[in-house]
C-alpha cells in the first residue's frame, strides 16, 4: 500500500509549479509535507489524487500508474480528506460518513446494511458515535475533521491523504486529530499530510518532506529535517529550533525573541 511520485512536473500554463519531484511513501508510514504558502504543495496533492492530470511523470499507487485508474479504482486505494468541507445542503453526520462507501457500490446502487455497519464501525473507531444523527453544518471545525476521518475509514482505502487537516482547528482539536492519524498509521494506514506546523510534524510523523519552489528541499526523518538551518531556508525567516524532553519535541521560535529577553536559552 505505497504511493510513489516519479519525476513529476507540473505547470499552470507557462508558469512551472512543480519540478521533477520524486518520493515514495511506504505502507504504514506517516509523512508530512512542509513548505511555505504557494510552493505547490496543494498542486502536488491534487496530482497525486488524480484531480489534476496535466502533469508529466508518474504517480504510482501500489506500483500501478494512477493515470490508468478510474475514479472508483483509485478511491478504493486512496482516501482524501479536504482542508474543509462545506456541503451546499444539510446532511447528517451519518449521511456524510456513508458517502465513503460509494466506491464499493455498484453503479446504480445505494448503500445497504453492510455499508451502514461499516459507517457505524468508523464512527465508533474515531470516537464520535454520538454525533451520528447531528447535522454536519452545526458541528465545530474539529468535529467536522473527525467526521471526515471517519468517512475516509468507511472508504476502506489503505492510503489517507490529508490537506492541512489541522488548519482552522483550536489547539486541543489539532492534537486530537493528529493522535487519531498517528493511531491509524500504527495500524498500517499509509498517511500523507500537508501542514504548516513543523513542530507537530516533528512529533507525529515518521518523515518530513520540505518543499520549496516546486522542488523537494529536504526529505528525511524529523530529526534530520527540523533544524535551524533547514527551517530558516525553508521559510526564509530567522528562527531558532529548540529541543525539549530529550529531543522528543522541538519548537521553532523567532530568533529575535532571544535578543529581547536578554538571552535565556
Amino acid at each position: 500500500m505505497s504511493i510513489e511520485v516519479k519525476n513529476l512536473s507540473f505547470s499552470y500554463g507557462d508558469r512551472p509549479v512543480l519540478h521533477d519531484i520524486s518520493f515514495k511513501v511506504e505502507k504504514g508510514e506517516f509523512v508530512s509535507i512542509l513548505g511555505p504558502n504557494g510552493v505547490g504543495k496543494s498542486t502536488l496533492f491534487r496530482c497525486m489524487l488524480g484531480l489534476l492530470s496535466g502533469y508529466t511523470g508518474e504517480v504510482l499507487i501500489n506500483g500501478q500508474n494512477s493515470r490508468k485508474m478510474t475514479a472508483r479504482e483509485s478511491a478504493r486505494q486512496v482516501a482524501y480528506i479536504p482542508q474543509s468541507s462545506n456541503p451546499s445542503f444539510n446532511y447528517s453526520v451519518s449521511d456524510i460518513v456513508l458517502m465513503g462507501s460509494t466506491a464499493s457500490l455498484s453503479r446504480f446502487a445505494s448503500p445497504g446494511k453492510k455499508d451502514f455497519e461499516r459507517c457505524e464501525w468508523a464512527l465508533e473507531k474515531i470516537g464520535i458515535s454520538e454525533l451520528s444523527e447531528r447535522c454536519f453544518h452545526r458541528l465545530s471545525g474539529g468535529e467536522r475533521q473527525l467526521v471526515m476521518l471517519a468517512r475516509a475509514l468507511t472508504q476502506n482505502a489503505p492510503i489517507l491523504m490529508l490537506d492541512e487537516p489541522t488548519a482552522n482547528l483550536d489547539f486541543g482539536n489539532q492534537l486530537r486529530v493528529l493522535e487519531q492519524m498517528k493511531a491509524l498509521s500504527k495500524e498500517g494506514y499509509t498517511i500523507v499530510q500537508t501542514t504548516h506546523h513543523p513542530e507537530q510534524s516533528y512529533m507525529f510523523s515518521d518523515r518530513i518532506l520540505a518543499v520549496q519552489d516546486g522542488r523537494i528541499l529536504h526529505s528525511g526523518s524529523p530529526k534530520e529535517v527540523l533544524t535551524k538551518k533547514n527551517m530558516q531556508r525553508l521559510y526564509a525567516v530567522d528562527v531558532d529550533v529548540l529541543s525539549l524532553y530529550d529531543d522528543h519535541a522541538r519548537i521553532c521560535v523567532p530568533a529575535n525573541i532571544k535578543n529581547k529577553s536578554g538571552g535565556i536559552s
Binding site: 489524487l49 484531480l51 478510474t70 475514479a71 482516501a79 482524501y80 479536504p82 458517502m99 460509494t102
Partner: peptide
C-alpha cells in the same frame, strides 16, 4: 449526494 460535496471530493470518493 456525493456530487453535492464538490467535484474534488466526489472524485476522491470514486465518482467521475
Amino acid at each position: 449526494n456525493v456530487l453535492t460535496m464538490g467535484d474534488d471530493e466526489a472524485r476522491a470518493l470514486g465518482v467521475n
